[in-house]
């Protein structure tokens, strides 16, 4: 994660839900158990702040917010990924893999990471195969798959395709007579 990376900044701005545990303080508009939508960076900070830092015992400490998992980490979604990694449509999420990193970082979720890694490898090899075609027309299923890629995968496809295309073109051209 780099400070100046624009992708990172946008990814941080993705929204997820929070569940307020705040005790109603005077003047504080948020009541208990209210769902609010927060950008990820704000949610990250609030979720780890304790209400009362002076409390020493861990059991009594309560975070201000409890994060509800966004839909793309829900059990159904993950199950769908397990069965069908190609068909999953990641394009609405833009930065799925970055989000996975941040989420897993917060919760030490190795299971999630393993699952997503496997999915990445599957989809990536599919991307590699597809990036061989020189012309830009893809049919049916392939087109669907390509539309369902997230930001990272799309960039991967582009660079992979460019690399193959460069080589093919270079092999085809014959040199000029001048050096």
């Amino acid at each position: 994660m780099s400070y100046y990376d624009i992708d990172d900044i946008i990814a941080d701005g993705q929204v997820c839900h929070g569940l307020g545990y705040l005790n109603g303080q005077p003047g504080e508009p948020i009541k208990e158990n209210v769902k609010i939508e927060l950008p990820l960076w704000l949610a990250q900070i609030l979720a780890t702040q304790l209400i009362d830092p002076s409390q020493s015992s861990q059991e009594e400490a309560q975070p201000i917010l409890k994060l509800i998992e966004p839909e793309f980490f829900s059990k159904q979604f993950l199950n769908f990924i397990k069965s069908n990694s190609y068909k999953t449509n990641l394009s609405p999420y833009l930065f799925y893999y970055k989000l996975v990193c941040k989420w897993a970082n917060m919760y030490n979720d190795t299971e999630l990471v393993d699952l997503i890694s496997k999915m990445l490898v599957d989809r990536a090899s599919e991307i590699n195969d597809l990036s061989f075609k020189l012309n830009d027309q893809f049919t049916g299923n392939n087109q669907e798959f390509l539309n369902g890629l997230d930001g990272f995968e799309k960039a991967l496809f582009k660079t992979s395709h460019a690399s193959f295309k460069d080589l093919k073109n270079w092999l085809r051209t014959s040199p000029n007579s001048a050096s």
Binding site: V100, K102, A104, L120
Partner: peptide, 17 residues
Amino acid sequence: PFVLKVMNQLRKLKESS
């Protein structure tokens, strides 16, 4: 480029947890 990108991403995923 393909190998480096995918390996890098896999590594980031693993490291984050």
